[in-house]
């Protein structure tokens, strides 16, 4: 039990209480569920590959998105992590291809451009066939800086470079929003007519 709690605590976002709660749940769960879970954990490394084109995680290379001929290969959306790609896919708003950087610039953590897949992005865009690169890194200091770094590096590549918009989240509350978000929401307002 202690071993399982200690192992679960090493997972991101899992504290001691949650780890103990999960461990007790597994202890009382049907054998089938526990077996399925342990099998999935045991196989995740062997069964997961990185797409050699977009660097998304999946079961096959190239991934289903890169291999899908009906998707728009001229539009490339750059994201930090595979989870960000999944979020955009779930929105259903983008039908192009992706490029997963593997993080964002964070000099104080020792993460520079060489630690991200920026050189691969550069080669991919300069190889031609891409008319728009959408920089969808997170709207925080590191994500913004990464987007500007990439924009500077891709200058003259022939593709237009765009940044995802900022604004109020759905279900948000103006009273609790910071003034930068409110300011950008007003700047990027839409005509309702």
């Amino acid at each position: 039990m202690q071993r399982l709690v200690a192992s679960l605590r090493r997972l991101p976002g899992v504290g001691e209480k949650s780890a103990a709660r999960l461990a007790y749940f597994l202890l009382g769960a049907p054998d089938e569920l526990v077996g399925e879970l342990s099998d999935a954990i045991a196989r995740i490394k062997a069964d997961t590959v990185i797409c050699s084109s977009c660097f998304n995680l999946g079961a096959i290379d190239p991934c289903p998105i890169c291999a899908n001929p009906s998707r728009d290969a001229g539009a490339l959306c750059v994201v930090e992590e595979p989870a960000d790609l999944s979020s955009i896919e779930q929105s259903g708003s983008f039908k192009g291809h992706y490029h997963v950087l593997g993080g964002a610039l964070s000099p104080i953590d020792g993460i520079g451009p060489e630690n991200l897949r920026i050189a691969e992005l550069d080669s991919r865009v300069r190889a031609g066939g891409i008319r728009e690169v959408i920089l969808a890194t997170n709207p925080n200091a590191e994500g913004d800086a990464t987007a500007h770094y990439i924009a500077e590096r891709l200058k003259g590549c022939g593709a237009s470079l765009t940044r995802i918009a900022y604004g109020m989240p759905l279900g948000g509350d103006l009273e609790y929003a910071d003034h930068v978000t409110i300011g950008r929401s007003v700047e990027n307002r839409r005509n309702l007519e």
């Binding site: 200091a141 913004d144 500007h148 930068v180």
Partner: peptide, 14 residues
Amino acid sequence: DPFLPLREVPARFA
């Protein structure tokens, strides 16, 4: 103030 201009130029950010 989030000092947004620091994010816009890599040398400033660095």
